[in-house]
Every structure is written in C-alpha cells, then in structure tokens.
Amino acid sequence: MGYKVTGMVFALYILIGALAGVLAGLFGVGGGLIIVPALLVSFSVYGFAPEIVTHLAIGTSLATIVITSISSTRTHHQKKAVDWNLFKQLSPGILLGSLLGVYTATQLNGRTLQGALGIFALLMATRLWYGHALSASACGNQPTKPWVLTTGGGIIGWASGMFGIGGGALSVPFLRWRRVPMTLAIGTSAACGLPIAIMATAANMIMGADQPFLPAYATGFVYWPAFIGIVLTSVPFSRLGAKWAHNLPASRLQQGFALFLVAVGVKLLWAAL
C-alpha cells in the first residue's frame, strides 16, 4: 500500500523516540511500553490498515530495542553490572520464548491483540505501583538450577515478543526474586533485551512478510521510517531521563508512570471491545 512519509510524519516519529527515551530513563523501564501505544495512535491516524496496525507497532518497537539494547548493554558492561553467566543460562529460553511470542501475536487479530496488550499494560502498572514492595519482599536464593533460569527466560521472551518490549519490566523482578543484587539484575536484564529484540524482530519480518495490508517501506511488521526516527532520539534522550531521575523522587515517578499505563491499558481494552 502506498504511504507518503512527509517531514511532519517523520518529525512525529522523532518526537516519539525522544519521549520514549526520556520516560525509559526516568522510570527504568524499556521504551517499548511507550513506543507501542504511541505508534498505535500514529499509525491509525495516518491511515494504516486496522488489520495490521497493532502488529506493525509491536514489530517496529522491537526493532528499535535492538539499537537501544546495544547502547544500554555496553554501558552496564563497562560498569561491570552484567552477570554473563546468568545471561548465558537465560538466553536459550529467551530466544525460544521470543519466537513463540511473535508467533502467538501473529495468530491473533488486531483487536484481540490490542486487548491482550491492554491487560498487560494494567499488570505492568500494578507492578510499578507496588514496585518497591515487590523488591523488598524478594524471596528465593541465588539461582543455581539452569532450568529455573531457562524457564523464566522463556516466559520473559514470550511476553516480550508478543507485546513489543525489551523484557526489563519482567526480567528485573524475576532476577530480584531469585536474590540477584539490584545492580546486576538491571544490567543483566538490559543485556537480555538484545537477544529478545533480535529474535523477535527477525520473526516479525519473516512472519509478517506476506501480509496484504503492509505499507510501503515496511519489511514484514517492521516499518522503517518509524524505526529510523525513533532510534535517532531514543538513546540520547534516555540518558537525559536517567539524569533527571536522580533529582526526582523515585516512588512518585514510578507511580506517575503506573497511572499513565492504567490510562493506556483502559484505552486499549476499550478499543478492543
């Protein structure tokens, strides 16, 4: 399908990237939770076929996470905050789960997938609202059994591939539950976002290749003009958000973002009805 990428449209994608970057840096969550809802709105406004709007938003979000994960992982590695042994044990489950997550999404129509995404946003809002309590009540031991990490990685990868996120909103609580120190949990989670994004992006490009309603400049469910606009600003603005986070109350920030996700979740569920 033909679709003209004007300067105004491209500027919107740049703005989405900046907003996603700032909020991701402020709240310590992946930009996918912001990018997917924003792309859903912009793709709908600019006339993309409703049959593929949700899938296209999710696939494009995952493609941007490839770039942001590389930057984030490099930073955490330099600070010695990535446990590469944990990463290796999580990765098999993550890769398989990501593939299955994309496959699950492709089997759902756009309205059903929006409803599932709305429920997921509400669950993430609950986790953010009670985030400090969940971390404080971590119960478990440092993981020693590979099957625990592989299974956990599979669930994280599945949800991430299905909903277009980097997995940090799930992997950090999982690692904290297993008594991994917070710094290592965050850094290792950032590293895990890369295999999630690579596998899920490739799967979206391949599984979405034969869709009849794809716009020009799309490879499967990845829309390249939005990808380029978002990655131009998401990485530098995430650093700005992280800097601001140090000067603002963490609990209030998390609760503010939780309320934002409640609004997003309710809107998506309403649209799915």
Results as ranks from 00 to 15, higher is better:
Lys4Thr: 15
Ala226Leu: 08
Gly164Ser: 12
Leu269Thr: 00
Gly157Cys: 13
Thr151Cys: 12
Gly93Glu: 01
Gln114Gly: 04
Phe237Asp: 09
Met1Ile: 11
Ala159Asp: 12
Gly229Val: 03
Ala20Ser: 11
Thr183Trp: 09
Asn247Ala: 15
Ser69Asn: 09
Gly97Lys: 01
Pro50Ile: 08
Trp158Val: 04
Val180Thr: 06
Pro249Met: 07
Ile156Leu: 13
Thr106Trp: 08
Gly241Trp: 02
Pro249Gly: 06
Trp158Glu: 03
Ala191Thr: 02
Pro249Tyr: 13
Ile65Ser: 11
Thr64Glu: 07
Val29Ser: 09
Tyr130Asp: 12
Pro249Ala: 09
His55Asp: 12
Arg176Leu: 09
Phe43Ile: 14
Leu62Val: 14
Ala263Gly: 05
Thr188Asp: 08
Gly187Ile: 00
Ala105Glu: 07
Leu253Glu: 09
Lys145Phe: 14
Phe221Asn: 01
Phe257Leu: 13
Phe10Asp: 05
Ile65Glu: 06
Gly2Leu: 13
Phe48Lys: 08
Tyr103Leu: 09
Ile58Asp: 05
Ala190Cys: 04
Leu123Val: 12
Gly168Asp: 04
Gly32Tyr: 03
Ala133Asn: 15
Met205Arg: 05
Gly229Tyr: 04
Ala202Thr: 03
Trp224Pro: 06
Gly97Val: 02
Gln254Glu: 13
Gly140Cys: 02
Gln254Cys: 13
Leu86Asn: 00
Pro92Ile: 05
Leu96Ser: 06
Gly110Arg: 00
Trp84Cys: 07
Pro215Trp: 03
Ile155Lys: 04
His77Glu: 10
His76Asn: 02
Arg252Phe: 13
Gln255Gly: 13
Leu23Cys: 14
Ser238Arg: 09
Leu23Pro: 12
Arg127Phe: 15
Leu128Gly: 01
Leu248Val: 00
Gln78Phe: 12
Ala63Leu: 07
His246Glu: 14
Arg176Pro: 04
Thr219Met: 15
Thr233Gly: 15
Ala81Ile: 07
Phe213Tyr: 07
Thr54Arg: 03
Val262Lys: 03
Ala271Glu: 10
Leu117Lys: 01
Ala121Gln: 00
Gly161Asp: 06
Tyr13Thr: 03
Asn85Lys: 15
Gly193Ser: 15
Val102Asp: 07
Ile34Lys: 09
Trp270Phe: 15
Phe213Cys: 06
Gly30Ala: 08
Gly2His: 09
Leu134Met: 10
Thr201Pro: 03
Arg127Pro: 10
Leu56Thr: 09
Ala272Met: 03
Ile119Glu: 07
Leu117Met: 11
Ala258Asn: 05
Leu268Phe: 14
Gly30Arg: 01
Ala191Pro: 04
Pro92Lys: 02
Pro249Thr: 06
Phe260Val: 03
Ala245Pro: 00
Gly153Met: 05
Ala271Cys: 11
Gln89Lys: 07
Ile16Arg: 05
Phe10Tyr: 11
Gly168Arg: 04
Gly193Gln: 03
Pro92His: 02
Leu95Tyr: 06
Ser71His: 08
Phe48Ser: 10
Val262Thr: 08
Ile14Trp: 11
Thr64Phe: 09
Lys4Ser: 12
Leu90Trp: 06
Gly265Pro: 00
Met205Asn: 05
Val262Asn: 04
Arg74Ala: 10
Arg179Cys: 14
Ile65Gly: 02
Gln107Trp: 12
Gly166Asp: 02
Cys192Lys: 00
Ile14Arg: 05
Val262Ala: 13
Ile70Cys: 10
